[in-house]
């Protein structure tokens, strides 16, 4: 009986201790708000709501001056380095747990949820925000990929063109078609902008029959992303055609490189 009582007391003590520890931070930091930082380390190139919070906190402290776009670019990088320098940390621009802890402590009073909400309002209210775990890269307005300047909207056009031209093709074939459009940018025979190439009269059947305006799926977007970063399964092709439907004799005369799926790629 006595033994059982003691056991109960011990259990109760442990439970109270656990409860205290669990509640403690909330009691101490009354007035501050819970951080949405995740476990992951943030580096230049990261994107997501945790990056937005990082920017928000740095802006709150006056280190960051750009917009809270949730993508870790150079602006954020210098802000992080300055913060690390001022707080006597290792200056590397990498946001690990130490930097996060210091930053959260330094920017007490900053409410990440409110900041996100105000951004949402500013963006026209309730635009779908992705959760931090699914940090998708929000494309910056213009990016240069190996000397090619391609804006975020150009990328959308590319995805549309790839989807309209090669729906139902193997993935490699879709990357190859995106690569062909990009290869044309460097070729003197073609216009040197993405819209110029896509809307060149007679260049793409998907443009002529309006299939380019179908909404592209994720695979087409992925194919564009891969092609932009240098993956070129077409081996430098600037033309392709479907041998089953090609009517032009001239296109058959071009030096052929390879066949992927339904398309022959040539130069």
């Amino acid at each position: 009986m006595r033994k059982k009582w003691r056991l109960l007391m011990a259990a109760l003590t442990v439970a109270t201790a656990v409860a205290c520890v669990a509640v403690e931070p909330g009691l101490v930091q009354s007035g501050t708000h819970e951080s949405t930082f995740t476990q992951r380390t943030l580096v230049r190139g990261s994107a997501g709501t945790d990056v937005r919070e990082l920017q928000g906190r740095l802006k709150f402290l006056g280190y960051y001056k750009g917009s809270l776009d949730g993508s870790f670019g150079y602006g954020t990088y210098w802000a992080v380095r300055n913060f690390q320098y001022k707080f006597g940390m290792k200056v590397d621009g990498v946001v690990g747990s130490t930097t996060k802890t210091k930053l959260v402590a330094a920017s007490r009073g900053y409410n990440p949820n409110q900041a996100t909400a105000s951004i949402q309002r500013a963006q026209g209210g309730g635009t779908a925000k992705k959760p931090a775990s699914k940090a998708t890269a929000t494309a910056t307005p213009t990016q240069s990929y190996g000397g090619k300047n391609v804006s975020a909207n150009d990328m959308k056009l590319l995805a549309n063109a790839v989807y309209g031209e090669s729906r139902g093709e193997v993935y490699i074939g879709q990357v190859a078609i995106a690569a062909v459009i990009l290869n044309r940018m460097d070729n003197p025979n073609f216009p040197n902008t993405v819209p110029g190439i896509i809307f060149q009269p007679g260049a793409f059947t998907a443009v002529a029959d309006g299939q380019i305006w179908l909404s592209p799926n994720d695979q087409a977007k992925k194919a564009v992303n891969d092609a932009l970063r240098g993956w070129d399964p077409s081996s430098g092709a600037i033309y392709y055609f479907n041998p089953a439907t090609a009517t032009s004799k001239w296109i058959w005369g071009r030096p052929q490189i390879k066949r992927i799926g339904a398309h022959i790629f040539c130069r």
Binding site: P233, S235, G236, A237, R254, P255, Q256, I257, K258, F265, C266, R267
Partner: peptide, 14 residues
């Protein structure tokens, strides 16, 4: 491995 045709930038295999 398949040899790529003459149109490629350098002789190569897919």
């Amino acid at each position: 491995a398949k040899r790529n045709g003459q149109g490629n930038l350098y002789p190569s295999y897919s």
